[in-house]
Amino acid sequence: MTKTSAFDHLSQDDAIGMLRNMIRIRRFEEKLTVLFKRGKLPGFVHLYTGEEAIAVGACSALRTDDRITSTHRGHGHLIAKGARVDRMMAELFGRVDGYCRGKGGSMHIVSFDLSIIGTNGIVGGGIPIGTGSAWADRHLGRDNVTIVFFGDGASNQGVFFESMNIASVWGLPVIFVCENNGYTEWTPTSELTAGNIVDRAAPMGIPGESVDGNDVVAMRFAVERAVERARKGEGPTLIEAKSYRWNGHNEGEEAFAGAYRPEAEQAEWRERDPIVAFGERLVESEWLTREEWAAIDSDEQAQVDAAVEFAENSPFPDAEEALDHLFAPSKESA
């Protein structure tokens, strides 16, 4: 019973898995909004709500052993790369069952087992790191690729230009995915950023592609093309994915940042909800019923609720662990 696909070579399972991942990110981030307001989180969080299609589309084009580096707004990338919401939540609560045993928190959740080789509290900080993993994989004769996620703000950091340059001259299998959500912290990106970010690829001699970051299928296919080039040894690609963050730069900003985004603009982007858009396409294609969609949603909501319970029941690390993990033991050290 083959159906004609509206999504080219994308399989039904893949498509439904992508919808599920986007919903998981959305429900996770919505939960954090509430937990933050209730004072349940020790630190602060930057949420990915509204941008789910970018991470999910991009990571769905990767193999498990392909790598990513992420940003301060990284929860979506982690979930899209296969991270468990319970261990993520435990990390956000500073508990011992968190991915980093409570040492990292929101901006530094990382799982090397999932080939997530860094998230970052420094804007642009992960760009050289992902360029480096691509260098090592190529040097060691592997065919893994690395996606470097970063925002529009990071596109004005020097390491962005430096990394594109070295990736181009060394022909590295790295895909630079710029998530342009329209705002550099609290200032419109257009006021701070010359030209189009995607156009910064051309002078480096690498392909650049601009993608609708709210279209998960477009994102998937753009990254697939870049991955194919990278695996064949044809070097890096820059993808600029345009989207919008529904929440603030960080939760709690309303206390100090004031209103800096027009209400109409926010409403317009909420109308373009990437999850609703994709779900509707799946329903129209008869790949998914509304009942199945609702079931996925309630299942993911339940998982997120369970994650909070898991996190709350996980103990804090022993305080002496503050002194652990600085250096690896080494046979050459005294």
């Binding site: 790598r67 080789i117 050289p128 790191i129 360029t131 480096g132 060691l140 430096e162 340059n165 001259v169």
Partner: peptide, 23 residues
């Protein structure tokens, strides 16, 4: 030989070391 991009090649070593090189 690297370009004159200290920040980037110092950082590339982090990613490279994480996946198996000893830069």
């Amino acid at each position: 030989n690297t370009p004159i991009s200290e920040a980037t090649f110092v950082g590339m070593c982090v990613g490279a070391a994480a996946v198996g090189l000893r830069p």
